[in-house]
Amino acid sequence: MTTLTARIRAFFDETGNLSRFAGHFFSLGIKPRYEFRELLAQCYQIGYKSFPLVGLTGFIMGLVLTMQLRPSLVSYGVESQLPVMVGIAIVREIGPVITALIFAGKIASSIGAELGSMKVTEQIDAMDVSGTNPFKYLVATRVLACTLMLPMLTLLGDAISLFGAYIGVNIRSVTSFNLFFTQIYQSLSFGDVLPAFIKTFFFGFAVGIVGCYKGFNSSKGTRGVGISANSAVVLSSVLIFVIDLLVVQLTDVLGLN
């Protein structure tokens, strides 16, 4: 009984601490001095370096999704709608969410492990002593880089995914590049694209803040570092789905569908 209440207590403690950490980002992160160089370096690490992975998974996803959807569409006699169906699925949901999950797997864990080991080996304290605010230098730059880079990755990932879908369509039948994309673009509206695009900022923020939070609060020892990396991925993945759910509800309420 006590363990249950203790666990519930721990859950809310964790939620509170994470929220305070995020609040810190907004109160501290917006004040000078701005770590532009480090931000660019992190954008490179987090964004550019993740692109091959996101591109590859996106391509395969588009291809496979198309091949999986085709048989049922054929049996309904609407094979010609395959690009539209795949296009909507990728742009609205699968593209952003899968990219974010891949991103969480790669980035949240690496941030969690990096900051965790920096914490454990007192590098963070060393920065603090050296007159560089570690929250600004390490956390704000990483969170901002995640928030800005995930949308870029998602956009490119979607594009590559759609290209994969185009190839998927062409495996069994023939459609021109032009027709394929005209069909997709015609079926898309701002209501499809905008919420999907905007939510990726929140996904990126969640991945960054959770990774940093877990790393920053890593307990001593290599085990602690492993745990921070692992729990960063788990928590940020869950958060991605929660945010996704909220965004769907919100766009519904706002009538953006």
Partner: peptide
């Protein structure tokens, strides 16, 4: 001086030494 050195392991020696100068 930290007991465990606390060198920034993602930076070169030079960058480590330059870091306090950022101030």
């Amino acid at each position: 001086l930290f007991q465990g050195n606390a060198l920034y392991d993602s930076m070169t020696v030079r960058e480590n030494l330059e870091f306090p100068l950022r101030r």
